[in-house]
Design a protein around this nucleic acid. Structure first.
Lengths: 118, 118
DNA sequence: CGGCATCCTCGTAGATACTG
DNA sequence: CAGTATCTACGAGGATGCCG
């Protein structure tokens, strides 16, 4: 463990680049909510629409494509009568779970904090 | 532990609200990088500018104000010859550390993954 | 049902110049 | 050094309508 250069300029850059990488993929208003939603189980397009309150079809479609491109989400089309499409997290998408958990945990704790103060 | 309604509509809403709350506070291109930067120690305005590659004075200023409003960052002005200002994480700001760690960890793992694939 | 095309709006963010 | 002011551009994101 010769990690003695932790505070070097280089280490900081790696640090920041990692933050940037993650945020590039999860940026925007909706991606994390979509991931959070799918982490509870696969869903249809319409199901996601209903579940994510506020999102429009265009946004959802676009965000899902982004997530699919990054290998986080798998898209499956079924040739049912009116076509249906199912989205689910890939195993890679599931690797975001601890991250999502932290975000949820912090958000809940934050809301509690605000209530106590006001 | 009667958390048996985990999958209820209500629980989902709380879930999503928490994600939304957190992202509202950490949204934007820079906030997480600023937090990450300050988590390594207090810094001057100029220090942050230099450390965060790419950010402009206006953005940095605005983002810092946001973070201060949310109680994540403490701003201290020193009446030195040319005025200097120091920024540091509050204890509340430090509560984001595990979150930031997860983001960094995932970002680094993601970059590794991409390298292996290409 | 899923989702693309079009149009439009508004916020975000950059460049530059200026102040205390 | 640490901002603020102004001006501008771009793109995220919403509304609507059409298509497989």
């Amino acid at each position: 463990m010769l990690k003695k250069l932790e505070n070097s300029k280089e280490a900081c850059d790696i640090h920041h680049r990692a933050i940037r990488d993650t945020m590039d993929i999860l940026s925007g208003k909706w991606k994390l909510q979509i991931v959070g939603s799918l982490s509870l189980g696969k869903k249809h397009f319409g199901g996601l629409m209903a579940h994510i309150d506020g999102i429009g079809a265009k946004m959802l479609s676009k965000e899902l494509q982004d997530l699919e491109l990054n290998g986080l989400v798998k898209r499956t089309v079924y040739n049912t009568k009116p076509i249906t499409v199912e989205y689910e997290l890939t195993s890679y998408g599931n690797s975001l779970q601890p991250l999502v958990d932290e975000i949820v945990a912090w958000g809940m704790q934050h809301r509690r904090k605000l209530r106590d103060k006001d």
